[in-house]
Design a binder for these strands. Structure first.
Lengths: 112, 112
DNA sequence: GTCATTAATAGCTAATCGGTTATATAATTA
DNA sequence: TAATTATATAACCGATTAGCTATTAATGAC
């Protein structure tokens, strides 16, 4: 599984997206993250492992706590891929415009 | 499963991302899409169904063919979510900057 | 040292996923 | 009408996933 696979797959889960949204406001510990969800602590820990594997968060050690924070690198990778797609899309729209314009010319400008 | 779940989940598969990249260059039929992959036609048909369900492609009918093309709406939804995350992130960095500045003031500007 | 807290891990289960082969449907061609 | 082409669907299989409970490890408080 590529890093991009892991990142998109991590983002496909609503719990994990909610965790990321929470982390966008700053560093949060595992128990703090778990609290608003109807889910056990081990379940949250596994979600965090998935997010970490996807390069979307990083964790540090603070006593018994493991505060998490966002790692923008993962999000960058996603936006880069989307940008590539959009660029191809735009390029081909432009080419299509060119083709249509040429066709229009050949027909003696019947279309406005 | 929400639409956003479906979209991210659809993007998590490399075959499906390759299909989207191909479709960014224009309309393609199912067999044309299947040809470069080491995969059977039913497998591709299912990937297309997933992409359609995620709002990432649309299909039209042309005789026995079903040409697919990209539906930018799905990609828009993803970018919108990422934008929201980035906005929260930026907002909180700014707030953090403010907090740090205030702390600096209280300490009598010991930091540069 | 003992107990409480924070978090991770192991092992289980039901559901989902991504592929396969075989078959069905629908339009085209001979 | 019969054969071919393009695609979809069904039934199956092995791997993965997302949750659970129970347990473990490590730190902090008393």
């Amino acid at each position: 599984m590529t890093r991009l696979d892991a990142t998109f797959s991590a983002l496909a889960d609503p719990t994990r997206r909610a965790i990321l949204a929470r982390l966008a406001t700053g560093e949060v510990t595992v128990m703090e993250l778990a609290q608003p969800f109807a889910m056990t602590q081990p379940a949250i820990s596994r979600h965090l492992k998935v997010l970490e594997g996807a390069g979307l968060i990083v964790r540090r050690v603070d006593g018994t706590k493991r505060p998490c924070r966002l790692a923008p690198a993962g999000i960058d990778a996603v936006e880069q891929w989307l940008g590539m797609l959009r660029q191809t899309l735009t390029k081909n729209y432009e080419r299509l415009d060119g083709v249509l314009a040429a066709m229009s010319q050949e027909q003696g400008d019947k279309q406005p």
